[in-house]
Amino acid sequence: MTTKTIKASAAGTFAPVLFAVVLGLGVITLTGHVQASALHDAAHDVRHATGFPCH
């Protein structure tokens, strides 16, 4: 394997990892932190039970 293909495959692996992490953190922020009242009310019990700061 040449240096070039190693670099290409490393970049090809890093992008999906980064995207999955960002997506995951986005979901956690939405369910755990966003204070919009509809979201807050729906997620209220979960936020308390899962240790997120709530109201």
């Binding site: 999906p16 999955a20 992490v21 997506l23 995951g24 979901v27 755990g32 997620a43 979960v46 899962t50």
Partner: peptide, 30 residues
């Protein structure tokens, strides 16, 4: 209504955790 929403949001939250964890698992495996 209330507990149904709790179930959905708990599943969503843990799926969020899992996305972060599995992404890091793939890095560790590499």
């Amino acid at each position: 209504m209330r507990d149904g929403l709790s179930i959905v949001f708990t599943m969503l939250t843990y799926t969020g955790y899992a996305l972060v964890m599995v992404a890091l698992m793939s890095m560790a495996e590499r």
